[in-house]
Design a protein around this nucleic acid. Structure first.
Lengths: 141, 141
DNA sequence: TAGCATCTACTACGACATGTAGTTTCGCGC
DNA sequence: GCGCGAAACTACATGTCGTAGTAGATGCTA
């Protein structure tokens, strides 16, 4: 857990994260500034240095990690989209006391589509399955 | 549903909302700037006008409603804490595509305490109960 | 009725985040 | 040795938020 809040991304920051996330499989070592610029900067008419600044700031905020590759840096997402989202969700709910949280959750579900609720149920079921399996063996992180 | 995003409150803004929320039952007509100042401004050594500015901005952002009461305005929360939270949760999850959302939810649950998960289950159960009851009668909202 | 209290409306300003980009510096390969 | 490309540093505009002062309206009171 990073000490810095590092929530709420700006538009460009978000676009960069999206790019890093979606290319992470194909490029596990990350992308250089130039690569990011070629992918999302050119089409927006952004200067190379703009992406450099943004990536630099993002690494200082702990949103991305970077590693040397020759004279360049390779940037990788510090956490997956799922992790970051989960973090935000916890943050949002974390501000609420127990009783209020209940109400908020109810409201949330109330305004969810049946599909979303199904997803949630499925996730709960999966968690349960995993837990009961792990009860007598696994020691996960 | 407000057209303006109106998420992410600042510290003072949040404190004001908390005050409006917690006093809403006892004061359904809302609070005046002076009352808000007396309640949370004095102890922080804030000027009266500071609260005025903040409340004014918040009403422009749609966070609070206001109604005339003599020469003063009475401010009420535009939505309950639960609604606002629910909105934020939806917003957070709304950026994700189906597959990613599943993963995010799983992550979220993974990092939740058993109590939190119970709360969620309870909320789901309550929703279900309400739905099956309403299937043949109620026409809500 | 003149003045004081009280409220709103308008303006301001510093700090910080973000988008955007230029300038400087430095190392590597030819 | 020189130039290319990358990083590092600096800069500036805009928007938000916390903070507050001042001007102007209006009602109450002596």
């Amino acid at each position: 857990m990073p000490s810095t809040p590092r929530n709420r991304l700006g538009d460009l920051e978000r676009a960069v994260m999206e790019e890093l996330w979606t290319t992470h499989e194909a490029h596990p070592d990350g992308l250089t500034v130039r690569e990011v610029h070629d992918r999302i900067g050119l089409e927006r008419g952004l200067a190379y240095t703009t992406l450099m600044t943004v990536l630099d700031r993002m690494s200082k905020k702990g949103l991305v990690d970077r590693e040397r590759d020759g004279r360049a840096w390779r940037y990788t997402p510090a956490s997956s989209r799922a992790e970051l989202t989960s973090e935000t969700l916890h943050h949002t709910l974390g501000e609420l006391a127990g009783d209020t949280r209940r109400t908020a959750l109810l409201h949330f579900l109330d305004e969810s589509t049946p599909e979303e609720i199904d997803e949630l149920r499925a996730a709960l079921a999966e968690l349960e399955a995993r837990n009961s399996a792990g009860t007598r063996a696994t020691t996960s992180t």
